[in-house]
Design a protein around this nucleic acid. Sequence first.
DNA 1: CCAGTTATAGTCGATCTGATTATAAGATAT
DNA 2: ATATCTTATAATCAGATCGACTATAACTGG
Lengths: 319, 319
Amino acid sequence: MDQAKGPRKGRTIGKTNNVNADLIAVVVAVNDAGPCVLTIEQGAALPSGPFELAHRSLQSGLRAWVELQTGQPLGYIEQLYTFADRDRVGANQRVISISYLALTREEDAGASGRRSWASWYDYFPWEDHRSGRPPIVLEELRPRLIEWADGADDGATRFDRRRRAAVAFALDGRAWNEELALQRYELLYEAALVEEAKRGGVSAILASVPGRSMIADHRRILATAIARLRSKIKYRPVVFELMPPLFTLLQLQRTVEALSGRLINKPNFRRLIEQQELVEKTGATTAETGGRPAQLYRFHHTILDERPVAGTKLPLPRA
Amino acid sequence: MDQAKGPRKGRTIGKTNNVNADLIAVVVAVNDAGPCVLTIEQGAALPSGPFELAHRSLQSGLRAWVELQTGQPLGYIEQLYTFADRDRVGANQRVISISYLALTREEDAGASGRRSWASWYDYFPWEDHRSGRPPIVLEELRPRLIEWADGADDGATRFDRRRRAAVAFALDGRAWNEELALQRYELLYEAALVEEAKRGGVSAILASVPGRSMIADHRRILATAIARLRSKIKYRPVVFELMPPLFTLLQLQRTVEALSGRLINKPNFRRLIEQQELVEKTGATTAETGGRPAQLYRFHHTILDERPVAGTKLPLPRA
DNA sequence: CCAGTTATAGTCGATCTGATTATAAGATAT
DNA sequence: ATATCTTATAATCAGATCGACTATAACTGG
């Protein structure tokens, strides 16, 4: 499987193998414009900072860095992944990146200069299928992916690349799967169709690449967060972390749609939400929605204690 | 939410905040005796070692350590969680623990002295519900959990502790949920009913504690692995990593039952497996099963490429 | 040849799910 | 005032799924 030559015998002690550990946060909110991520450096980086001895835990270190850099206090936090790939961060440094997903509401914003909210889909324009498949997939990505596939040396690899591209991007009549966000990004990286793949190496004359990029492997971490969140909303009631205290069922639906990047059947969504008893009517209504005034709901917190694995099942199409 | 006082302004550079990173492996296999984990130190520790500069990646570092310490080559690997809690590892050191789950077959065993396979349920005797609820839950855990709950200062905490214990351990007529393995361990830790919770602190006169313990937070990592695996087999076809190349459907069922710690309805299991086209008949049969000879199946590998998120749905009872 | 064991096929009813239609209640335009 | 638009909410229907159960087949060991 793998070489076993690397390490010396026994355990090395002391400072010999010390590394730097970075904490990186993907802070997500949803507003009318869609799903947003909290960024610094004018959208080029995620909030992050080194894990320090003073930090009580990884989570508290992360909270401290995000609050320092953006003024944003974090509520719900969940660990995403720990990366340490040598080639993916740029220089020849050895850094461990421990990434987290945080869910919040944009209004919680304190005033801070360096921060800004950016739409997910600025970084991943091929991921938003709410108005059908975006043109970029067939017009830009597909030809370039085919070109990449056909550039392989042997037939088996060509076949495999074509198949992977087709599965990830729903080509050849396949169904779109919104949870493959990370695989799509990794495929584009492998095909050198994203800017990150071209750093350091051959800086050939490059055609424009789709989607805005970020420093180091931050866009990859964002893709990880999107994939995780799109998967998780289907079986855990995490959407409510993104909602205001009171909301209508349509607002809830629009939030889920913004995250998953696809539209949901309205009656089925309502039925599923209501029968799970995750929300309760407040009695109040709002007329701000345009048509008939809608009931305002609130999240039924106590249900969480009793049903620890209760899923927010969502009627997203399967295959 | 959290204090923002800790870190200094800006990014600290250089070696100031270096930490040690440990790679820890939960290597799982299933044999006739049940689900097993690969251990060293006579079952007291999981294979582990520091992440070193020589390692190409976290995964290759892990593979190297496991192979060095146990002779076991690893196939399927999946990241579990990254811990860095100061209090949970023992001494006042600062160590990041990056844990992985690996699935393998026990027969792959090379000869190596320090290793041994241990049953999950030696460490978590309350987790095996294949023959109904084990007596330890009602006879030992329940009274002690109640005692712990009633020891709280205020009524609200008492109520909350009782509720959490009831949810986790299926008391008061609640249904058992095998996926809560980690929550159960954490609850016992909080209630100081496991040996790990008593280290370093007050070494009072202690009644015997249930289940075998491990060094540092290794049992906690094992609990994390069990919970993850029990959840994952329901929607991803990972069971096959634990199976020999050819197997009968009952062997497959017994493996799933061993992992989940509960029994499955046989006709329904077969139906679900077959209709998902994850396996294919080989035509061969085996008479080693006692009764009527059983068809030997093999895992249908190609299906994985085409259906990246295809779940191995399992007919485990819901609520 | 009978009892025991396992394999395999099939049935039945309840529930779930996806899609569709119908009706209600407001705002806005003419 | 009436028509029309928008959104909210209720109801229906057929197909798929799921859990529990029954029946039959094929082999082994006394």
